[in-house]
Design a protein around this nucleic acid. Structure first.
Lengths: 233, 233
DNA sequence: ACAATAGTGTCTTTAAGACATTATTCA
DNA sequence: TGAATAATGTCTTAAAGACACTATTGT
């Protein structure tokens, strides 16, 4: 009994989000042949934009989580604030053969990235980019999950480096959901999560009342909605 | 550049639920060496209970979805009412090597199963079963996702073969959520989903008012809660 | 004082929950 | 008619939403 033919490559495909200049951005790579193998005949989607994926390396990575951390580290060079597995796809996604792709959502604070990577506004990618492989599908899944989860969780807090003001936070919710929210209602929902911890600092940036800085009281997400009996995954 | 060593096996691990005698049951297999290879030295977790998993076969399955359908068909021999991908795990889950497991939730109407499979009440498995591999972890994830989703969707409708009455449906919600619900409130939520379509039939099973039969007005899930702006999934 | 934004309070609207009432069936 | 359950209606409670009001800053 030999099933060796049934083995497949497994790629890790994170969709990395950051906030920049009032817009949600996503990390995009332009595919280039590896410099140490410039004559690679078999490199698909050369010069196409793509998600910052990487191969899962069972010979190096003890667990899937390690592979994910490694890929994120290699492709961003930065600290990732939040990671969540999205979904897996499988089939002849890659012209070189049958592959599994395990995708992730990652939230990060906007910053300079390593060579080849760039931040692109999400709506720009949706309108004008043809991504390599099935990455357009994965991106759409990621956006759906992100916008959905923002509706009922403290997720947007993880887009900030550390401290944030409530007006800043509300703007992030409004950007992602593409909808204005009432200040009073918004604050009630956020405050009842218990996630807010005053830093003591204030943000002074004009001739008007300064806003208090807060930080997350805990690492984990907190969910809204009294009307749900149990936790949401 | 040769990455062949990085290829892995990928297993499909569905958690199949059905309702039986007022309890939620899950499909469990007892692991036996394949009959055509009785002297297999390398067969792990022999005689352990396990989820009805199967290997993804890229040489046969064109896409991951096909592999999932095939495994479900092989292991249940029955019609599956609802399938949803759960999550993927990876690592040295199997003593034979590094593997990926892609797990699923499946809902099915209770019925006789093929040889080796059996229905076990979920609480019984949680209390007393040591499952093969990391299947206890997967089962717990599946139960979390199921109970959570029942809170805000029409998912339990897919446990019925075809038609159901509202009292029957409410009982299913109560069984899965392990909580009594108010009849009036329950009906309001269900009715506003627009999922109910009268069949015209009635269930007469005693000296009292018979209940109307309904069927699902559409195949897809519908979600509750006016307070969410977008869909959940 | 004024302009601008932060933060709070009040009223309205809507959905959830508790509970009572009516409806239908068979014996 | 009575017992049992189906189905609906009413009132209460709690959260969401709209909007007005107060607070704090620099010039």
């Amino acid at each position: 009994m030999n099933y060796e033919d049934e083995k497949v490559f497994c790629s890790i495909d994170p969709v990395v989000f950051a906030l920049h200049e009032g817009k949600l951005h996503v990390l995009i790579y332009t595919r280039k042949k590896p410099k140490d193998h410039p004559e690679d005949e078999d490199y698909p989607f050369e010069n196409y934009p793509a998600l910052p994926g990487g191969l899962c390396r069972p010979t190096k990575d003890m667990k899937l989580e390690e592979a994910t951390s490694r890929v994120l580290k290699e492709k961003t060079g930065a600290e990732v604030n939040y990671v969540e597995q999205l979904l897996s796809r499988g089939g002849f996604r890659d012209p070189r053969g049958w592959t599994i792709s395990i995708s992730y959502i990652a939230l990060i604070t906007h910053q300079e990235l390593i060579e080849g990577a760039q931040w692109v506004p999400v709506d720009e990618v949706l309108k004008n980019y043809i991504l390599a492989f099935d990455h357009n599908l994965i991106l759409q899944d990621a956006i759906d999950r992100l916008t959905n989860k923002v509706n009922y969780s403290t997720l947007p807090m993880h887009l900030f480096e550390d401290a944030f003001t409530l007006p800043q936070l509300q703007k992030v919710y409004e950007i992602i959901l593409n909808d204005k929210m009432d200040k009073s209602t918004f604050r009630k929902k956020i405050e009842e999560t218990g996630m807010l911890e005053e830093t003591g600092e204030m943000l002074k940036d004009g001739p008007y009342r300064p806003a208090k800085f807060y930080r997350c009281a805990q690492k984990n997400l907190v969910y809204f909605s009294k009307n749900m009996k149990g936790p949401k995954f």
